[in-house]
Structures are given as C-alpha cells and as structure tokens.
C-alpha cells in the first residue's frame, strides 16, 4: 500500500501527512504534482496548504493540474482519495465531491480545535468510530465555509454523504459550534463513492500521540484498510 501525498506548489501539510501515515504503519510518500502518480499508488491524499498561493480561489488552480485527471480516474476505480483542508478545496474544485469551500463567516483565518460529530461509521474513513461519536480535531483555514445550493444539499443529505458535522462537545450541531458558517455545520463529505472524502479539519494534526490528542487517527486509518 503506497499512499501518494500529492504536493502542489504551496502545499504545506504534505510532510505532516506523510509523518502521520508513517506512524500508522501506512507506506506513504510525497509526490510532486508534475511527476504524476507512481504506478504503485494505492491511495491518494491531497494535503493542506495554499496551493498556488490560493491566489485565484482556494484550490482552483491545483484542480487544473494534469495530475488531477489521474486522481479522478483512480478515484473512479476505487482507489481511496482523501482531501484535507486545501486538499478538500481542491477536491471540490476538481469535482471529486460536490459543494465548495469559501471564506469563513469571520472573514479571518482561524486556527483552533473544534469538535466533530461522526455521521457515518460505515466508510473506510470512519470505521474506527460509531455514529454520533464526538471527536476533537484542529482546523486551520480562512476559506472553510461549506457552501452548496439548497437542492444539492438536500441531495447530499438524501444520499447520506455528510461524513462530519461541527458540533459542541456534547455532539449538538449548534450555530455557536459552527466555526466558519458552513451550511448544515458540514465539516466533511463523501464523493460519489465512499472511498472518496474531503474535510476541512486536519486529522494528521490529531494523530501523533507525543504532541497531544489522537482523535484524528481513525480517519487516516482509511488508507490502511
């Protein structure tokens, strides 16, 4: 199992992702986007950062990189793909998932710990949890507000594609517990298949036990399946 952690110009959580995956016993390596996916790729992580400086719109430029055609085709064939933070924005921009992540309600960058409620426990990313579990994971983003048309949001709900929602520590998805104004408190969603997911919070920052909480490791376990 080799997970390709795709590095775009401006990615900055690629090393962290590799370190966290390595700790979990998952073989992972950084792959420069222009080099294309290695043949042995059996999982793909789009890490956080500021690809192309977020200069046009977060994730918009990276979504045009040729490697994303390879990612989409691998995803269609069942290869697990996880987009985190900027990787989530790239995932939406390249149509791996529906919706979009845009400027926080506060209009400021926010780096803080949040609580997430697990909405699905039958995906590779959430097998380690039960539905309704509350996990604590950090966010660090300026453009993390999930936006989608009402009709398509209803579709997401109907298809049971919401993976995580922001909540308080008791699991209530309140406005106060919504750090960025996301529609439906959505923090992470599935693509058309359960092996493709994007989320704004950083599981790789809540995995290494020597620096704090480890609530996020279950998500990265999706690559170990």
């Amino acid at each position: 199992m080799t997970v390709a952690v795709v590095q775009f110009g401006g990615s900055n959580c690629d090393r962290d992702a590799v370190r966290a995956l390595t700790y979990l016993g998952v073989d992972a390596e950084r792959v420069w986007h222009e080099d294309g996916l290695p043949e042995e790729t059996t999982g793909i992580m789009l890490p956080g950062g500021f690809s192309y400086g977020d200069y046009l719109r977060a994730g918009a430029m990276a979504a045009q990189s040729p490697i994303m055609d390879e990612v989409r085709s691998k995803a269609e064939n069942g290869t697990p793909v996880l987009g985190v933070c900027n990787g989530a924005q790239i995932g939406c921009e390249s149509k791996l998932t529906d919706g979009a992540f845009t400027t926080n309600k506060s209009a400021r960058f926010q780096c803080e710990h949040v609580y997430l409620r697990v909405e699905r426990a039958d995906t590779p990313w959430t097998n380690a949890y039960d539905v309704g579990d509350v996990i604590e994971i950090p966010i660090a983003h300026g453009e993390g507000r999930f936006e989608i048309t009402e009709k398509r949001y209803d579709q997401l709900e109907a298809n049971n594609q919401v993976l995580f929602r922001y909540c308080d520590k008791d699991g209530n998805s309140t406005d106060d517990a919504n750090p960025n104004g996301s529609t439906g408190n959505v923090a992470g969603i599935l693509g058309t298949s359960e092996t493709v997911a994007v989320l704004m919070p950083h599981p790789e920052r809540a995995t290494l036990p020597d620096i704090g909480g480890t609530d996020g490791e279950g998500i990265l376990h999706g690559f170990a399946e």
Partner: peptide, 26 residues
C-alpha cells in the same frame, strides 16, 4: 494567535496562550 496557523509542522506540543511554546525536536 487564532489567526496564526500554530500547528502546521506537527511539532507544536505546547500552543500559544501558555507561558512558552514547546516544539518537539524528535
């Protein structure tokens, strides 16, 4: 410090708001 990403690098063992930050030199 909420506006600063103080956790990227996954070394921050003690975060801002305390007396000193602690960075893990593994």
């Amino acid at each position: 410090y909420r506006q600063y990403d103080h956790e990227v690098g996954t070394r921050t063992a003690m975060k801002p708001g305390d007396d000193a930050a602690i960075i893990a030199l593994r």
